[in-house]
Design a protein around this nucleic acid. Structure first.
Lengths: 276, 276
DNA sequence: CAGATTTTGGAATTTTTATTCCATTCTTCC
DNA sequence: GGAAGAATGGAATAAAAATTCCAAAATCTG
């Protein structure tokens, strides 16, 4: 009979900060559906003010009633009360991307935000350049070669290592047999290359000798090699059966990887779905 | 019999600009109450997305029915249609893709170049979102914490591993003492954390327990922890002294890393130059 | 593995909001 | 000053949205 007062009767968050705090606090211990709500809401807080329960629920991929329960757990009487908070706090983010970027770059030269502006711009330009310059024939051929391989050997060190490790991750997610040659212990695993396999080699100037060596070795054994590199003068080219070229825009001595990763992902996903 | 076609059958404005033009055009020749509507709406365009008919009518000091009539005169079927324009214009409508991209995507669906178009677009959108959402204060604080550290410990696995390995590369190029915790051999190297060091932890949903564990461990020893993560609900947050949040746009199940890398680079270069 | 407890999805209900309609009030112009 | 037409306000209705409730499913516990 004494239903020991279950949840302390939370009062509704009064500010957006309070809201975020409570959300972060609660999220970990919520059951699955409610957790989905929390994540979606966290990622799309700005849409609360202009959406209906049904729209948000659809976005979070839960039924509307789950979202209602979620609002109540946060301490609101319901969705409407929560929405009121955001409608009142709402001020449109009108200054759009290009304006915002200008502001970022205009900040005191050398400040972190100015730097960020530069890197964002460099990434954007690289992506645009890639869109313009991609060689569709080479891309299709690369996909074909890799789709037919038994195991795909991925090699890319130093600056190319983030790319090769991401490729390895994506292939694993798609259950494509792949081996990442990461150079740990200076082992080169050359003899892991078996007939029927293929090599995906990635390197940019200044080129890694280990990567080039592995690619040449594979070629001599008659394995197909797909090269992901930057210039027509790359030493990788004479080892390769298919060449994908991508040039990143530098910012100072530093180079974005946006375009390279976009291209690598494309390759991985296309291969993954071709192998089906 | 020929009821001389009354008002030319206006179609609804399709953009906010069109809306403003039509409003300016019409306002002068409207009768009193409708004129009030026009004036109030012109001055409070930004509230349309988040208000009800009744609220706006009260603001303009007219009855709701007058406001309804006003919407229809502007060419909308009613208030809801007008509101939809502003709700959509507000949040998600990051504008203007370049036309090149459209072409890429237009290629045979499922073809590699169509895929590439999607990844390029996802990267672009992620960069734009980052430009909008970056928390400059948190960024400065993160730079400060890492600049003061003796050794910087970088930890990020699975999907975050490309980011952490790139950070390690850049720090090395800049001669900043840094250690990459890569989980090789399942060693956690927890005791490499020394007083005076700092941790830069990177993880995205679904969060890596190893990364979170190392961050918490560091926090308990009183070391500063900089978190690079995606959502306010991330378990990393309660371990962190500075939190950088970045959200990537998904394409299907796959996620670009463009924005994350841009932010990571910024951090690395800012720290590198702060340490001279 | 059975029973207890929590979580979930969706249909039913209530509340709010948008929209229409029409009697009344203002304007205008003869 | 009165008739014709336009404009108006508010009550009535329709549509949409929020909220509740409960049976079924999933999960936990002994």
């Amino acid at each position: 009979m004494d239903e020991t007062a279950d949840p302390p009767p939370l009062s509704a968050p009064a500010t957006v900060e309070e809201f975020r705090d409570r959300l972060a606090d609660l999220a970990e211990r919520l059951p699955r559906r409610l957790r989905q709500c929390a994540d979606y809401i966290a990622a799309n807080t700005d849409r609360i003010a202009v959406s209906t329960v049904a729209e948000l629920a659809a976005g979070a991929d839960v039924p509307p009633s789950a979202l209602m329960r979620f609002c109540q757990i946060l301490g609101f009487s319901g969705f409407s009360e929560m929405q009121r908070l955001f409608r009142e706090a709402y001020s449109p983010g009108w200054p759009d991307y290009s304006t915002r970027l200008q502001n970022l770059k205009a900040g005191e030269a050398g400040s972190p935000s100015a730097l960020l502006g530069e890197f964002i711009e460099a990434g954007r330009l690289s992506l645009e350049a890639l869109a313009k310059s991609v060689d569709e024939a080479a891309l299709s051929q690369a996909v074909q070669l890799l789709s037919r391989a038994e195991t795909i050997h991925i090699v890319g060190l130093r600056r190319a290592f983030p790319v090769s490790s991401y490729l390895a991750y994506v292939f694993e997610k798609m259950a494509v047999p792949a081996m990442l040659h990461d150079g740990v212990g200076k082992l080169d695993h050359r003899f892991a290359l078996r007939p029927g396999d293929a090599v995906l080699a990635i390197t940019f100037a200044p080129y890694s000798t280990e990567t080039v060596a592995l690619a040449l070795d594979a070629q001599q054994r008659g394995l197909p090699v797909v090269a992901l590199t930057d210039l027509p003068t790359s030493p990788l080219i004479r080892a390769a059966s298919a060449v994908l070229m991508v040039q990143e825009v530098d910012f100072g001595a530093f180079r974005s990887l946006s375009a390279t990763i976009a291209l690598a992902m494309t390759l991985a996903v296309a291969v993954g779905s071709a192998r089906g």
